[in-house]
Design a binder for these strands. Structure first.
Ligand SMILES: [Mn+2]
Ligand SMILES: [Mn+2]
Ligand SMILES: [Zn+2]
Ligand SMILES: [Zn+2]
Lengths: 139, 139
DNA sequence: CAACAGTTTAGAACTATTATAATGTAGAAA
DNA sequence: TTTCTACATTATAATAGTTCTAAACTGTTG
């Protein structure tokens, strides 16, 4: 929970001009106690609920990608027709409920550290993500 | 490495009519010693290299989805503009080279079994997939 | 063979995402 | 404060992977 001046500082220190659109998007993304997952469309809805000034879809895409590049958001790899993002940038994994198309954090304490005992020469590891797909238990 | 009569049997026993398109796609997918990863476009290219009879794009999509539903193919979750499929349906994980947009199997022996010590009530686990993103090592 | 459900197909439709290019603005310099 | 300019926003078009449609075709069964 930060106030606007802190977002302005955060944006400035990232080399991003603190425009009113970016500040608003910061509020929507980071002004809540709990982190959450979202698609671009869901974010657009959250934004329009919390302001009267419309932000164009292109700006939402641009800003989400900028924040992702700066490390303020993560993109979660799922097979879906749309991208999912996460305001929780700490190391953790996910359940994906295929029935409800819903992402759920797995507390990092509930997952044994994933050990990969092999490497690709000339490449370095950027991330290690576990996705646990679940479905309704009919049995 | 199976011959056509075995594909015909495999298709029949799955409730799929053994059409010449499906048999051809079986050959392209399963007639090699090594398993591999592919996108729909790459599969279309492989098909046209190995036959003169064109198979329509819609049929390729239909068949890949049918095979996936029958468990003959897996879809690999990646953030990409296109879907990746895998002819290796045994349990294993992947490196994804973001530079070359290339999927590489991780031998299951090189990964400690992933233990998830929590569940979602009413849901059962369908799959547990580890994706290790790598990039060029410039350091 | 006849009948029919399942399959293939070309092409249209759909939709998430990206590109374009004109307009606007934050921040620094004069 | 005014000017300047690189960066940002925006409406809109373009792109592209995927799915849909509906007509033609085919494998299977009786
Ligand atoms: Mn998909
Ligand atoms: Mn993406
Ligand atoms: Zn998360
Ligand atoms: Zn694989």
């Amino acid at each position: 929970m930060l106030d606007n001046s802190q977002y302005i500082e955060k944006l400035r220190s990232s080399g991003l001009r603190p425009t009113k659109q970016r500040i608003k998007i910061c509020e929507v993304l980071f002004n809540s106690e709990k982190t959450f997952h979202f698609t671009i469309n869901e974010l657009v809805k959250r934004i329009s609920k919390s302001t009267n000034d419309k932000i164009s879809l292109a700006t939402v895409y641009n800003t989400v990608h900028a924040f992702k590049n700066k490390g303020y958001l993560k993109e979660i790899p799922i097979n879906s027709d749309q991208s999912y993002f996460d305001t929780n940038t700490s190391h953790h994994h996910h359940f994906y409920d295929e029935t409800q198309k819903d992402l759920i954090d797995i507390d990092d304490a509930d997952v044994e550290p994933v050990k990969i005992n092999t490497r690709i020469p000339g490449k370095k590891i950027k991330s290690v993500e576990v996705l646990v797909k679940v479905e309704d238990d009919k049995s």
